[in-house]
Design a protein around this nucleic acid. Structure first.
Lengths: 148, 148
DNA sequence: CTCAAGATAAGAAATTTTTCTTATTTTATT
DNA sequence: AATAAAATAAGAAAAATTTCTTATCTTGAG
């Protein structure tokens, strides 16, 4: 779906009952995150498209559930919406890297007591790490190490 | 699910409303995880002790909330309880490393599309990583690399 | 012994998150 | 023009999680 490289007059609706973006980073719930992933990966999309992706890649989700959730996310400010056409087009309004970074920090804090290296340990001790990924790790470290 | 193999040597109450251990891996909720952390770090503890730790280290939590939650966790099989004394002593019934590993896997899957190296990238790109931790990383990689 | 302090269990209540239902509107087709 | 298909918004309902309330029991100090 070469969907939707058009119109950019997004309106940002009121933040009634949800914490504002700037102040409190009220993080996306599990389901909201699934939706964000689709939007991040595929760019601006319709509810139909997102719902299809979820059903393909994740789990069975009812169309109306997805639709409702995306409206809520609009309200929370996680997405914006282009309503110039009949089928509205949603776009992620939060940065992928920032959001993931933030949530990863939470994991580090909550699960590993703030220690990123503990997380690393756990990750490296994990059987699921392939030799290829191991190589990637080393490359990464090397690259970052040479930088400064 | 494997991370939930637990022993029921103490009294284990009926599993009325919670998914049975073997079938569904109902993972600990956020609050439950906080409690598990305390138990993992300090070993078998009373509700009072756990609650105090939470209030010191995490956030304000009511004693009865902690108590109730620990009962629920008992029911779910996340903890066991020694009730031989008046003040009961709870112990984590799920393995720390296994549980964290399992939950980290979830993060890798949900947030980074199954790619552990993506997670690494995100982590290393994070400003919060100290030079010391960077050193630890390198050590880790080296160590694991020499192993096989 | 009596009673206060502090522990327990269990259910109710409140919040948060997710899913379902309903009523309308728009578009396209016959 | 009539109707079917597909979209929307909004509220209700259901589920999951967290917190609060109540009633009871045990221990130990006075």
């Amino acid at each position: 779906m070469k969907h939707l490289e058009h119109k950019k007059q997004f309106l940002c609706l009121s933040m009634k009952k949800y914490k504002s973006q700037e102040n409190l980073p009220s993080e996306p719930t599990k389901s909201e995150l699934e939706i964000l992933q689709v939007l991040w990966e595929h760019g601006p999309s319709t509810v139909r498209f997102v719902n299809d992706k979820l059903n393909e890649q994740k789990r069975e989700v009812n169309y109306m559930s997805t639709q409702k959730l995306m409206l809520i996310m609009l309200d929370k400010g996680f997405v914006t919406k282009d309503a110039s056409q009949m089928t509205h087009v949603y776009e992620a309004a939060v940065d992928e890297s920032k959001t993931k970074g933030y949530m990863l920090d939470k994991v580090v804090d909550n699960l590993f007591n703030g220690s990123a290296s503990s997380l690393m340990m756990q990750l490296l001790g994990n059987k699921k790490i392939s030799p290829e990924e191991m190589e990637e790790f080393k490359e990464l470290i090397k690259k970052i190490d040479e930088k400064p």
